[in-house]
Amino acid sequence: MPVFHTKTIQMILEPVAEQVSTLVLIHEQGKDGNQMPDLINPILTVKAAVSNLVKVGKDQIKDTKDEILKLDTPPALEKVETSADMLVQASQLLSIDQKRETAEMTPEGMEGRKKLIAGSRGILQGTSDLLLVFDEAEVRRICKVCRNVRDYLNQSSIVAGMEDLVVFVKSLTPGTTTLARMIGDRCKDLTNQNHVAALTEEMDQVKAYIPGLISSLKAFVQTVDKPGKAQEAAIGNREYYTTQISERITEIIRLLQLVSTDDANTD
């Protein structure tokens, strides 16, 4: 059974993966000599669902600004479409085999079974590819928010008065709140619990460092006209907190891009 990257993908694909495995097993054990039932109706249902997916997929990439999504979606859609066509061919071949009068399978029956398995596997693989393409787009969306927050931290160096500080905090807070929510949602969906633990830890550290950053900025504002040790300490603290938060966000970006099997790279 494949390892699914997210619970959403797992929930969608696991039942079909199980059924395809069963069919493959029956075929490999040579136990699929029975005449197949008429599969044209279920195959037409699959074909209609594929047509809908292709339409939805094409609509989604038409509107997106994500160039990678635009590039990666068509091959996955093509794989699903080709596989659906293979299922139709399978049903035509199997209908010839249904007319046989002996226990022995016809060449069409054998070919039809092969196409049925290849088509079902292709649908599974193509749908999986497509879901992963969209999942990667979602990861890029979260990474963009990460980079925006990380870039905004540079503004801390120009905070010189109380008014600047208020603007800085007012601008930083929505970004970090959005980021925390997105990371929380992502953690709920990931299947690799090592990645979840690492992401949660990094995000908790970001949240823990923010009050320290604000305090250091406040201390700098209070000493802005009084150069000396207190001001130096405030600058040192500001640099420490911005560096820490920035590094934690960089690590979050790295962790978000890992796939479910990348366990060795968690540390």
Partner: peptide, 29 residues
């Protein structure tokens, strides 16, 4: 969301198809 719904429909339809094919073969086992 639309992609997820469309993918769910494919998965459901393919599961039903493969299940029907397997069931017919299992009768022989």
């Amino acid at each position: 969301e639309q992609i997820l719904e469309a993918a769910k429909s494919i998965a459901t339809a393919t599961t039903a198809l493969v299940k029907a094919a397997s069931a017919a073969q299992k009768e022989l086992v």
